[in-house]
């Protein structure tokens, strides 16, 4: 279980970072999204993995930490709002600057890739 979650976080983060380093706004937004998924899972496991346990003390055996679940909810909401904002901003930049490069210019090598 731990290894599976760790691998998922690692793959999501590395894909996210790779996409973040692209020069176009669309891959960057996808990269940001992947990165926030990885972060959300990471926050979730900071309360340790206790499969099958409830978040309430006194119901069944043992319990799992409810706080990271509340934190992750906050983080998800904030990252959704930010993604929506950056999406609109990217569209606006595409309209104002005439292309979707983050520096607002197209170089020949960028077009080829």
């Amino acid at each position: 279980m731990e290894i599976l979650v760790a691998v998922v976080i690692a793959v999501l983060t590395s894909c996210g970072v790779y996409l973040l380093l692209r020069g176009r706004t669309f891959p960057i937004i996808l990269g940001l999204t992947l990165l926030t998924y990885a972060v959300n899972i990471f926050i979730f496991v900071s309360g340790r993995l206790n499969p099958g346990k409830s978040t309430i003390i006194g119901v069944g055996e043992g319990y799992t930490d409810p706080l990271p679940q509340a934190l992750v909810l906050t983080a998800i909401v904030i990252s959704f709002a930010m993604t929506a904002f950056v999406m609109v901003l990217a569209l606006r930049a595409r309209a104002e600057l005439g292309n979707d490069h983050v520096d607002g210019r197209i170089k020949v090598e960028d077009v080829k890739s």
């Binding site: 960057i28 990165l35 972060v39 926050i43 934190l71 983080a75 904030i78 950056v86 606006r92 104002e96």
Partner: peptide, 23 residues
């Protein structure tokens, strides 16, 4: 718009790092 895009993207990555550190 151009400088704003840089600012927003960098700070979004910063927020993700903040969350990792806090977690």
């Amino acid at each position: 718009i151009k400088s704003g895009l840089h600012y927003v993207l960098l700070n979004l990555v910063g927020s993700s790092l903040f969350l990792i550190a806090a977690a």
